[in-house]
Write a protein that binds this DNA or RNA. Structure first.
Lengths: 301, 301
DNA sequence: TAAACTGATACAATAACTATACAACGGCCA
DNA sequence: TGGCCGTTGTATAGTTATTGTATCAGTTTA
């Protein structure tokens, strides 16, 4: 191991570094300090050779020789990636209610894989947005997001957990592709429901908005600066409150249009949805995909 | 941590920003202030590189270069608490703190892809559990989960959103493989933090528990029945409260062992963690992987 | 004695530094 | 429309630094 002691010419041959250069490195930067014979000839160990090789790596990376010595204790990079895919379409109504029933059954026994199976089946038959509108969203409305905190059942909480992982996954897979206008998305009011917000985010992402998602409590005063810093063109707020309260709670902004989603967003015919409204604005948000959620006159702030 | 690294040409090659432009940015706007050699040559650190990348993100968003600095500094109020972490003498410590710093920088400009990049890099170098312990968890503790609701910044909320999608994805990918004992996982107290619970779920899943995740508010009386119906062998509760309150709030159960996680779980040496405790029980939860969180005598209920 | 090694000095090719100038662009106003 | 101005990226000039290599005189090795 420490047996090998090599003279400079050998090191030069092994590393490809000119002997003169090796001496210069030692003299100028103290990078390698080989042992010496009594008369002063350099003797390099295996460790020195390693160190020289490391130096060569650093040089390769663009680090100047004068800095290499200080740096000789670092890590390095690496990368890769991957993705998945959904499927195609055909409409029917009883299909959805059957899916829903199966999901409800799975949820009642906390069967996560049962939920996954149904979801997968649905995704194999319909595009993601339809699955969300006809399955995920009703599921959320009927169960996970439906009750007062005190009246929540364990099944509701289980569905919330499952939905949040499903939607989180979807969001992550989808967002790299989007390239539309940026939207800042946040909740209004205390103790917001993360699932509602994730659902809303998926909705927006599917419509090619780039979403900056702010999860959890956040003082409304922060929103405008956040919108500016994130490059958003509009702010979309989810609120579980009634329209009037929500509008009152929403921040004023001269800079960004602010839209409300959630029960606060009430259409003229009284229908509410976790989703969203839109003003007859040129910057129309969530347009044209599902007209249920697109009608003039809905609540805006 | 103050290691001199790359000269300007390397930075130019890496970021695509002309050296002349880099100097102009520094001179005119003070955006990046690299270290200097004694003779005045610039030396950029990884952190500087990251900052430059963030600037590019801002430029791409149409934010003028003259304002980029303000935006960046807004999200990064001082190089504070990063160093306040417990000084665990990890050999790779600087790697992690560098990752953390980069993530903080990305978060400051709401750069989701920046966060993804760092995470991917970390995952290419370390196993997932280490990444979670050294990167995700500190990130959560320092930022996303650190503050009183009123003191939360938009960056905190943004990190929460990102973390919840990341963790949700991880959970979904991992859970099909697990086959260990079942665990019912829920939060104690009002307005629980979903990210904390997801983090805990990942922790448990990585230790081969099958997790039934109950997200959001849930009356404690429901827990025992849910455990029974889901086939759980134990109940694990996350609580943001102090140990005494949490224990008081936890349900009694004759049927299932109940464990506490979160600040409520305090080790004998006073260290707290989002993670968890364990009784000297044969059904040991979260055993043997990270002994920081495994010591007899920790809070149980 | 020839070959190899030593420190010291010198040199040339790059590369970086500062400072100033300039061109392209967009906004604004008459 | 035309002209002015602020912003911003780049170009240029004149210096200075970095760094690999060459050379030299003297010493050691084999």
């Amino acid at each position: 191991m420490s047996k090998g002691l090599y003279p400079i010419r050998t090191i030069a041959a092994m590393t490809g570094v000119n002997p003169v250069t090796l001496r210069a490195w030692e003299r100028r930067y103290g990078i390698i300090r080989p042992q010496r014979t009594p008369k002063g000839h350099r003797l390099y160990t295996e460790r020195d050779i390693d160190r020289i090789r490391q130096v060569l790596v650093l040089l390769e990376r663009g680090i100047p020789i004068s800095q290499a010595r200080q740096v000789l204790d670092e890590g390095e990079p690496g990368a890769q990636s991957g993705a998945a895919e959904p499927a195609r379409a055909e409409p029917d109504d009883s299909v959805w209610s059957s899916f829903l029933a199966r999901m409800r059954t799975s949820a009642s026994v906390f069967d996560e894989h049962g939920l996954d199976d149904v979801l997968q089946e649905a995704h194999s038959l319909f595009p993601a947005s339809r699955v969300r509108h006809h399955l995920i969203e009703p599921l959320y409305r009927q169960f996970a997001g439906s009750r007062e905190p005190d009246a929540r059942t364990a099944q509701d909480a289980f569905l919330s957990g499952w939905l949040s992982t499903v939607l989180g996954t979807r969001l992550r897979h989808r967002s790299p592709r989007t390239s539309g206008p940026r939207l800042l998305l946040a909740s209004l009011g205390a103790a917001p429901d993360p699932v509602a917000l994730l659902l809303l985010a998926c909705e927006a992402v599917d419509r090619d908005y780039r979403v900056t998602l702010l999860l959890g409590d956040l003082p409304v005063q922060q929103l405008e600066a956040a919108a500016r810093d994130s490059g958003a063109e509009a702010i979309l707020l989810w609120s579980g409150q009634a329209a009037e309260e929500a509008v009152a709670a929403a921040p004023d902004s001269t800079e960004f249009p602010i839209f409300l989603a959630g029960p606060a967003a009430r259409s003229p015919d009284g229908q509410t949805g976790p989703f969203i409204p839109v003003p007859g604005d040129s910057r129309d948000i969530l347009t044209g995909v599902d007209t249920r959620y697109h009608a003039p006159g809905w609540a805006t702030a």
